[in-house]
């Protein structure tokens, strides 16, 4: 039986935006609107979707970097939402994040050694010589050398910076890592190095990943299970193999068919979606995808489909009722 590590229940994150100084009517951007899912120990859960679908918000809110508006986040059975700072700090040691932009997520005025050792100091885990040994060890783990510790981020290339970001995340021996688009800012030949590094580390340290990305090929490669998000909700979630070979939700189908394949001989049926993603501040009623769906029925326009199990996977679509 798979053991759950993180459980997300009825999870919502709204951002409020005041229209103007005089107009007190507050409107909400529903970035994430009701998520329910579980991340199991040792697995990689891929979270895909287009920009604005709420995938990054989900990642950040799980780590309580931005507390959710509603819902629960259970980490090993403990609810993180509303937890006091002291307890949160203890739990946070086990959950770390790797960010998208390796240029913006490293302080340019700190040496790489200082960046990596900062979590060790904050949590009073190591200091002095012991700390330096740990930094060297971490640099070695991510494929850098100990002399890199004295250098500043600007002296590194994008791929190397991402390695520094990963070393920092590993410093506290976490169990769970949220990786938010960790390879999308990197060059093609560097991407595969970092993807391989993520896989090696998972094996070595028994890590659990929430891997957020918009690149479906990378997600397919690295994940065990995949969740597809659209406008703040998960529309389909299941085992990687079945989800990619037989997508059931019309949005998943369209998304997969839109990816250009690096093979000029493969001709495929493309499901072209019309128009743009609707604004999350004013999402359509019923199924949020119905405005762009080719198989839209009457019921889709009014009733929000339930997220439930169909053929061994979770799906939110009226077609499978």
């Amino acid at each position: 039986m798979k053991q759950s590590l993180v459980e997300i229940k009825n999870f919502k994150k709204y951002y409020s935006s005041k229209r103007s100084f005089l107009n007190r009517n507050v409107s909400y951007v529903k970035a994430v609107d009701g998520l329910n899912f579980t991340i199991y120990k040792g697995e990689t859960l891929g979270l895909v979707g287009e920009s604005g679908c709420g995938k990054s918000t989900t990642g950040r809110a799980i780590l309580q970097l931005q507390p959710p508006t509603e819902g629960e986040v259970l980490y090993e059975g403990e609810n993180l939402v509303g937890m006091n700072t002291k307890d949160l700090r203890r739990v946070r040691k086990e959950m770390q994040m790797v960010f998208q932009d390796p240029y913006a997520s490293l302080d340019p005025r700190m040496t790489v050694g200082e960046i990596i050792s900062e979590p060790l100091e904050i949590h009073k885990i190591a200091s002095g010589k012991e700390k330096n040994i740990r930094v060297d060890e971490l640099l070695d783990t991510v494929g850098l050398s100990s002399y890199h510790a004295k250098r500043y981020p600007h002296e590194f290339s994008g791929g190397q910076r991402q390695r520094v970001g990963i070393a920092r995340a590993l410093a506290l021996n976490p169990k769970f890592i949220v990786a938010d688009e960790p390879v999308s800012a990197l060059d093609v030949s560097i991407q595969s190095q970092i993807v391989n590094l993520f896989q090696d580390l998972q094996e070595r340290f028994d890590l659990t990943y929430l891997f957020i990305a918009h690149d479906l090929s990378v997600v397919k490669h690295i994940s065990d299970r995949v969740a597809v998000m659209y406008l703040g909700r998960i529309v389909e979630m299941g085992d990687k193999k079945t989800l990619f070979s037989q997508p059931m939700h019309p949005y998943t189908q369209a998304l997969l068919s839109a990816v250009p394949l690096p093979n000029p001989n493969v001709k495929k049926e493309r499901i072209m979606l019309r128009g743009d993603v609707p604004s999350p501040s004013n999402p359509p009623n019923g199924c949020t995808f119905h405005t762009r769906c080719s198989q839209c029925m009457e019921i889709c326009k009014t009733v929000q489909p339930e997220f439930k199990e169909v053929d061994g996977r979770m799906i939110a679509c009226h077609l499978y009722n």
Binding site: V188, S192, V195, S217, V218, K220, K241, L261, P262
Partner: peptide
Amino acid sequence: LKSVPTLIDSEQQTRLYSI
């Protein structure tokens, strides 16, 4: 060409080739 993962691959590669 070898280092990009693709959606076409039927067999599962465990590691990507990398330069």
